[in-house]
Each structure stands twice: as structure tokens, then as C-alpha cells.
Nucleic acid binder design. Structure first.
Lengths: 195, 195
DNA sequence: TGTTTTCGAGTGAATGCTCATTCACTATCG
DNA sequence: CGATAGTGAATGAGCATTCACTCGAAAACA
């Protein structure tokens, strides 16, 4: 197994993103990915254990970078309210900016087999931790209500953002995703009820 | 193609739910479903066009019944606030009560191929309509803020409930899902912010 | 009523296709 | 000249779908 940083390693991962985004998960054969990466089928097995490993690695690489960037952004803010806005903004902007990646992680990879999904979930947990930290801080700063349940607030934030991106992709990205940042932020903070 | 109501038709659908829930989507072969239903492999093709058709039909049947029940429940309430609670309650209770079905619709069928997913999405649209109606009514009754965006509120409600059920299943249903109804309702209505 | 014929639901072994993976071979580099 | 990286045709496993056949029951007949 070759090292995780050769240029071919990256080329294969990027090819996988491109092929899966273009053809869909179920039509992303190893040979197609290999051709796109400009290597032979067998070469993929020099860099990855098997096809699953390609997919898991791709998710780890890309999502890992995104989580890191999000953390960096949140560190710029002090107030939980602003951090929450930063989180929403990062999430939606990321998806807008790399359409292929968004398609792959939001839609296509979710059709994968249990082994891959488990790998994905492990990485996602980290992201949920970031959300948790914002909520906890908000309570400490007395900006968020003390009686909102941690777990539930997390599910709302993640669930809403996830659904927003998925349905934006499903609707062929007809509108500007980032324009949803403030309305979502407002809804999270103030809820549906009129005063 | 036999009629959509023979006892075998139902038996096959129920067998599919059971097999998929037990073995997972990727290990739910036609022959396993046939055995569970007590029919021969070929018999399935007398009642369904192909395997995809079994899965789509299963989703239509089950989800259709659920939507109908939800509508009936909401009709009992007058105020949008109570209807919203009814919606949340129905959603979580349904998932609690039929664990196999919840696993199949929430987790397993999402791994299916594009044809099946399209069928599923069509049915889901109907459910989104139910959500929309509640939001619109809430605005009319001046119970919900006038400036919340329809689309976004819908995504929040659906996204949160969906995530709640999925993560409950993923965590082996360790807690009582229905106990989340009121906290979620409260969060939707009042948001995170402290007064 | 008894006998023959037709019908079609039901069967399940055989087919054929699609890939992931392997591995004997080649090219290149130090 | 090893050693290493890369190649891509061949392999074989998995599985949806087919179709020639079975069999019981209803229809036709006498």
C-alpha cells in the first residue's frame, strides 16, 4: 500500500468525486475512476485497500478539511449567536462552492454499503461535536435558553442544514443557497411563533 | 401482472420489509424475500414489474397510509400550534411503533438506486405538502410569524424530524422517541434564544 | 355424474450480465 | 541489474430475471 500523499492518491480521490458526481454512485465503476485519474485499474489497489477504502478516504479528506475550516472560522467569533451564524454560513457556502463534492457527499455516498456508511458516520460525529460546542457556549453565555435540550438542538441544526443542502441539489441548485443563511439563523434563534 | 390486492401482493411487501430490516438493503435478494413470503422467486414477477417496483410499492403503501393517518389526526385540531404538535407526535410515534418499517424507510431504502429514490421522493412530496399546510395556517391564524419563509420552515421541520428518527435508529433506539415531541415542539416555536 | 380439455397461477433451476479484484507481466529508475 | 510502480486482460462471484414446465381447478362436453 503506497503512502497517503502521492500525487496519484489525490488524483484518484479527485477522479472519484468527479466520476461519482457525473455518473452517480451506481455507475461509478473502478475502471471509470481509474480512467478519469489517468491510471490503470490495478493502480488504485496500490493506493487503496479496495473500492470502499477509496470512498471512505474521499469523505475523510474532504469532510476533514471542511471541519477544520469551520472550526477556524468559528474561532474568529466570540458570541455564540455569531458562531451559530458562522456555522450555518460555512455549511451552505461550502456546498455552493464545490457542487461536485456536495453531490457526492450529500446524495451519492449515502447510497453506499454499510462499511462505507460507517466510515462516513465516524467523520460526521466530529462535525456534530462542533455544533455541540456552539450550543454549550451559547448556554454559558446566557444567549441560548438554559432549558433547550442539547441533543435536540443539535438535531435541529444539523437536520435543517442537511435538508437545506439536499433539497437545493435536488432542485438543480436553482437559487442562491447562501441567501438562506440569515433566515435560517433567525428561525433557529427566534422560532416560528409570533410575539 | 396480477392485481394490487391479492394476499400474495401484501405478503411480498411485508416480507420485503422484514427481510430488508433484518439483513439490510444490500443483502435483501429477491430469493430471500420470496422465501420469507412463502412464494417462489418467479411469483414476485407476477405481482411486480421488477425488484425496484417491489421497493417503490412498499414505500408508497406504507408512507401513503401514514400520510393519511397524519392528515386525519391534524383535522382533529384547530390551532396551527396544536396541529404542529400533532405532526411531530405522529411522525415520532409512527417510527417508534413499527421499528422494521422505520429502519427500512429511514435507513435502508435510501441506499437504493435512482429509480427507487425517485419513486420515494414523489411520495415524500405529499408529506411536505402536509407540513406546508400547517405553516400556512399558522400564519393565517397569526400564531406564526409572518416573516418566516415558508420553504425554510418546512426544511427545518422535516429535516429535524428526519434527523431525530435516523439518529434514534442509529443509536439502537435506546431512548423513548416520543418523549422528544414536546421539546422539539417548543424549540420550533420559541427557538434557541433566551428572553 | 363422469370425463376431457383448457387455463393460468405458481415454480425454481438456468442464464447472462456486471463489476471488483487479482496477478503475471512490463517499464523505469537508481 | 535488482527493485519498485504501474498495467490491464482475465477471473469469478453475486444476483436479477427468465421461461419451460407443473398442477389443480374450472369449463365444456356427453
Amino acid at each position: 500500500m503506497a503512502k497517503k500523499n502521492g500525487e496519484k492518491y489525490q488524483a484518484i480521490i479527485d477522479a472519484a468525486v468527479k466520476v461519482i458526481a457525473s455518473y452517480g454512485y451506481h455507475n461509478a465503476q473502478v475502471s471509470k475512476i481509474a480512467r478519469e485519474a489517468g491510471v490503470a485499474d490495478g493502480t488504485i489497489y496500490l493506493y487503496f485497500e479496495n473500492k470502499d477504502d477509496v470512498l471512505i478516504s474521499l469523505f475523510k479528506e474532504k469532510m476533514g478539511a471542511f471541519i477544520k475550516a469551520t472550526r477556524a472560522c468559528l474561532d474568529q467569533q466570540f458570541h455564540a449567536e455569531e458562531k451559530l451564524r458562522g456555522l450555518i454560513h460555512m455549511h451552505l457556502r461550502q456546498s455552493s462552492q464545490d457542487r461536485n463534492l456536495a453531490i457526492v457527499t450529500q446524495i451519492e455516498l449515502r447510497q453506499s454499503n454499510p462499511a462505507v456508511r460507517e466510515g462516513i458516520n465516524k467523520v460526521l460525529k466530529e462535525y456534530l461535536d462542533v455544533i455541540d460546542e456552539v450550543i454549550i457556549l451559547g448556554k454559558e453565555q446566557k444567549i441560548f435558553r438554559h432549558d433547550v435540550e442539547q441533543r435536540i438542538a443539535r438535531k435541529m441544526i444539523f437536520g435543517t442544514l442537511d435538508e437545506a443542502v439536499t433539497s437545493w441539489i435536488m432542485n438543480d441548485r436553482k437559487y442562491d443557497l447562501v441567501s438562506l443563511v440569515d433566515p435560517i439563523h433567525d428561525l433557529f434563534l427566534n422560532g416560528l411563533k409570533s410575539v
